[in-house]
């Protein structure tokens, strides 16, 4: 089934890596990218999003705030926080929000497992 994935990360390299892995496993998926939380809210307007990977530590709106906002907009979407900030307290806040937590660095295994679940 063709799905739409939203990738939000201020690092272009990270977006490239995620996109390359997803394209390999799910070549027909639509991929939407944004470099910030604010941009993400603009680019999703009028679109159906099925899966999201959100970076946490970004200039401006952080990924968790964005994720909670997008959860309301897309209650059935699968959302993951993809972050280098692997502190237990951060992980607990992400868990409490009902959002999946994927620790960086980005690897093929982690992304493939998340999108295939």
């Amino acid at each position: 089934m063709v799905k739409t994935l939203l990738i939000v990360d201020d690092s272009k390299m990270s977006r490239m890596m995620i996109k390359a892995i997803v394209k390999e496993y799910c070549p027909d998926w639509n991929i939407i990218e944004a470099g910030s939380g604010e941009e993400a809210l603009t680019v999703v307007e009028g679109k159906n999003i099925d899966i999201m990977t959100l970076d946490l530590n970004m200039p401006g709106m952080d990924g968790l705030t964005l994720g909670i906002q997008l959860q309301k907009q897309y209650p059935s979407a699968k959302i993951s926080l993809l972050t280098a900030n692997i502190q237990d307290s951060v992980r607990e806040r992400v868990d409490a929000a009902g959002i999946a937590f994927i620790p960086k660095p980005i690897t093929e295994d982690k992304i493939a497992q998340f999108v295939k679940e």
Partner: peptide, 24 residues
């Protein structure tokens, strides 16, 4: 721009790990 971006991200990942250790 891409080299700058890559280096920032690698540094970010390293600091995330470091902060986790310090936090403990």
């Amino acid at each position: 721009e891409l080299e700058h971006d890559a280096l920032t991200e690698l540094f970010n990942i390293g600091m995330g790990l470091a902060a986790s250790s310090l936090s403990q």
